[in-house]
Structure formats: structure tokens, C-alpha cells
Write a protein that binds this DNA or RNA. Structure first.
Lengths: 251, 251
DNA sequence: CGTTGTGAAGTGGTTCACAGCC
DNA sequence: GGCTGTGAACCACTTCACAACG
């Protein structure tokens, strides 16, 4: 690989820790629900419960945004909704393209939560010429040839990749070359992008494997000996030439 | 409000840090690709590049599993594939149910990566009686009424929720009551579960919002002051950073 | 009072850098 | 010589606990 820059080194963001940024959408969702029920104020304790975090963490998170609460009272729901929305950049409109309109791409296109908050699907793009013109979620699919033009005409800076793994890196490069600087990747592959481009990935099989790990642990907690013998078929001898696997774990 | 959750850091796993567990699937994927190309051994540097991490981290991660490498040479690809698979619990079969067969559920059912490694879709379940019997991904959709029976008959311990947000908590509770102890949640809502049940969530709109945050930051790096006041609706004074975008808040 | 906001202490994860071994 | 495995230093995030304040 040549230009493999995946993680930005020390993106201090703006003083807001990355972990906090990742929770702001959660708070926003909980606050929006409160807002719809016309709840005027909320304490850190209540809001934290609704968002599934603990209250000290929530208060610390909010402290990075400023002092938006009132001691002895709590937080003003509407005001906080506005502040978090602004902080997340949701007070502006983000045109998004979805590339790869298979089952998943179509599901994403139909996903309501997309349009709800600042995001607008500007185009659906697929490499299959037979799909061109087919309406998906009330929108005609466009051919990959148009990708660059679509991005530029719509000022798209966020792209969603839901192509097969094999096509993802190439699509990614075209998106980036056309001006996209944030990518949400659903393809099960590692994307390499130039510095300055953000990539987030969503990967079903990784999530399942993490669950399986913990699941296995739970099962093993009781039944210790449960012959999970290695399939002798596999050539899993210790090492190449000489075997030595003491598995030392001092600490 | 507090459910007597003593916040057990059960994440102690078995000495393997959670962050490491989350990367094992990534290594496994890269190793599988090497294996298919019949590459016999790989260095930490090469494998790290393929997995998109740095080599020190990879070596540290592997050190939690044991000493599976050979100094001066690298790691035996096949052997490592086996060791990681075993560690993740992929040497056994995990039946999975998908609840909520809308666009997304159908996409998940069709997702190939599902079956590939240890996971097997045992059933597709939906609350819509009209869907019952309809084949999706070559499998008949079953009605929610059957949920408990399906889980028990198949020994399902992992459930995927792709219902609308409003139904998710209820579905979750039924899954857990029937014996499921790991849940992958695609619904945009916080699930509350009893201790001992693992939940992982995949949330499109959260990911987009995180991207928007960084995107906004990039844009703001150039364009400096744009001082426009937040809506006068703000009734408190605050000392946070100043706003810059007029209100567009949908309430 | 009750609840926020925050230094300080604690925890977990990453990176460095090099000893140990092939 | 090359590469792994790992203490130690470093850094980011979380939690504690309490002073500040409406």
C-alpha cells in the first residue's frame, strides 16, 4: 500500500474529546424525545438514564460545550437541543450520496432517520447500468459515471459506501477525488484514504464476532471442559520448524 | 431513576482488553485474505497495514492471546487464523434470529458475510401477519408469535433487532426472556437489558452526526468569524462558545 | 436545599523503545 | 540482521467527590 493514512494523529477536534462527540447524538435523541413531550427541563441524572450513560459522564461531556445548565434545577431542554445540534453541525444541511444500491443501499435510502436531521440524500448511485433510472425510495438511481458531476453539482461532502467489498476502495477514491471528505463505510473492508478525510465504518460481521466472543465466555464460565478440540484437519502445529508455545503470561 | 445496576465492569473478559477483542475480527479478515492467497507467514508490520492499525498495537494485541509468532520471521497465517477464530468462538456454530424484516432486516438476511463465519440465520421474524410465509433470502418469514418457540428450539443466543425504534425494547425483552443473551440492535433507541446480557448497537444516524461534526470543523477551519446570534428564544445566559448559525430547529 | 461543573484520582488503552530470540 | 514480545511511559477517558451556586 502506498498512501495508507487511516487514523488522524491527534485531532483534538476543538477541545471536545472524541468520546464526547460520539455521545452527543445520543443526548440529542433523548432530548428530542423530551422536547416532543414538552418537558421543559431535565436533570443530568434523568437525561443520563434516558441516554444510557451515567450522570457524571454526561455532566463532564456538557462541560466541554459550555455551562448550559442551572445549578439546583437542571438543563433547559430546548436550549440544549439547539446547542448540541449546533455543535454537531446539524443546523446546516448535509447533502449525502449513497453508492451501491443493493439490498443494503436501498434500505439506507429508505431509512427515515436520514432526512430527519440535517441530512438529505442527494443521489443514489450504482454501477449497474440496468439499475439506472429505477426508482428507489422515490428517487432514480444514477450511474457511477455521473458520480463526479453529482458530487460537484450538489456540493456533497459526505458519502455512504454500501457496495460489495471489492468495489469499495475504488469508489472511495473517486469520492475523495471529487471532493468528499467524510465517508461512512458499510463494506467489510479497510479503506485507505488521504489525510484529512474521515472514515467511519459499520460492520455487521465484526459486531457479531464481538458478541460471539462474549457469548462464548459466558458459556465457558460454567462448563469448563467441553471438548472444543481443534479440527485435526487444520495444519495447526505449533510453529514452523520447532514447536514452543509456553504461552507465558507473567502479569 | 436507577435500576439497581452496580455497574459491574464485567468487561474484564479473561484478561483480553475489550479494545483488543474489537480488533480481532479485523485481523482475522486480513489473515483470511492472506490465507486465500496461500501466503504462509506474515510480519506484524504487513498484517498491521492490511488491518489498518499500527504494528505495535497488533503485537500487543496478539500478546494477550499467547506467543504465537516467531522472532525474526513473523506469524504463521493458518495457525493464527485458527487461534483467533477459536478465541472469538467462531469454531462453533451460532444460530441467530433477525427480528424485523423490513428493508434493513431483508438486507441483513441477504448479507453473505453472515453465514460465512460461524453464524447461521436460524429464523426471520416479523410482526406483520401478512409477511408470514413470504420467502426472504430463501427463507420463510415467521410471525412474532413463534419467537419464543423458535429461540428455544434452535438454542439461539444471539438476536438481531431491525424493527422500528418503537418496537425494539419490547422485542428485546421477549428475546431475553426466551434465553437470548447477546443482542445486536439496529433500531435507533437505547435498549435496557438485565445484567449479563450484551448489547451492541449499530446506528446510522449517530455515525452521520459524528461525521457532520468533523465536517463542520474542517469547514470552520478556514472561514473564521461568522457571528450570528442564536435564536432569541434562548433564555439563559451561557458562557460557552458563540453560535454562528440561525435557528433551523425542527421542534 | 438540589444540582451543576470540575479538579483530582483512577482506569484502560496506546505508543515507545529495546531486550530477547530466531 | 530481522522481528517478536513486553515493560514502562504516555495519553485519553471515566469516575469520584465536593465546592460553587442558583
Amino acid at each position: 500500500m502506498a498512501t495508507g493514512r487511516t487514523h488522524r494523529p491527534a485531532t483534538r477536534s476543538r477541545g471536545i474529546p472524541e468520546a464526547t462527540v460520539a455521545r452527543l447524538p445520543l443526548y440529542l435523541r433523548a432530548l428530542t424525545a423530551l422536547s416532543e413531550r414538552s418537558v421543559p427541563t431535565v436533570s443530568s441524572e434523568e437525561l443520563a438514564a434516558a441516554a444510557g450513560v451515567n450522570s457524571a459522564k454526561l455532566r463532564k461531556d456538557f462541560s466541554y460545550l459550555g455551562s448550559y445548565g442551572t445549578r439546583g434545577v437542571g438543563y433547559d431542554v430546548e436550549y440544549l437541543v439547539y446547542q448540541i445540534s449546533r455543535e454537531l453541525g446539524l443546523t446546516q444541511d448535509w447533502p449525502v450520496v449513497i453508492v451501491g444500491i443493493g439490498n443494503l443501499g436501498a434500505a439506507l435510502a429508505n431509512y427515515g432517520g436520514f432526512a430527519s436531521r440535517g441530512f438529505r440524500v442527494a443521489a443514489l448511485i450504482d454501477a449497474d447500468p440496468a439499475m439506472a433510472g429505477t426508482p428507489v425510495a422515490g428517487m432514480p438511481v444514477q450511474h457511477t459515471d455521473e458520480l463526479e458531476k453529482i458530487i460537484k453539482d450538489n456540493g456533497v461532502s459526505i458519502g455512504v459506501i454500501s457496495t460489495p467489498a471489492g468495489a469499495a476502495q475504488q469508489v472511495c477514491e473517486r469520492l475523495v477525488a471529487a471532493g468528499v471528505t467524510s465517508i461512512l463505510n458499510f463494506a467489510p473492508t479497510v479503506l485507505s484514504v488521504p489525510e484529512g478525510v474521515d472514515v467511519r465504518k459499520v460492520d455487521l460481521s465484526i459486531e457479531l464476532q464481538i458478541l460471539a466472543f462474549h457469548e462464548q465466555r459466558k458459556a465457558g464460565e460454567e462448563a469448563a471442559a467441553d471438548g472444543i478440540e481443534p479440527p485435526a484437519a487444520a495444519k495447526q502445529q505449533r510453529k514452523g520448524p520447532d514447536g514452543d508455545v509456553p504461552a507465558v503470561m507473567p502479569a
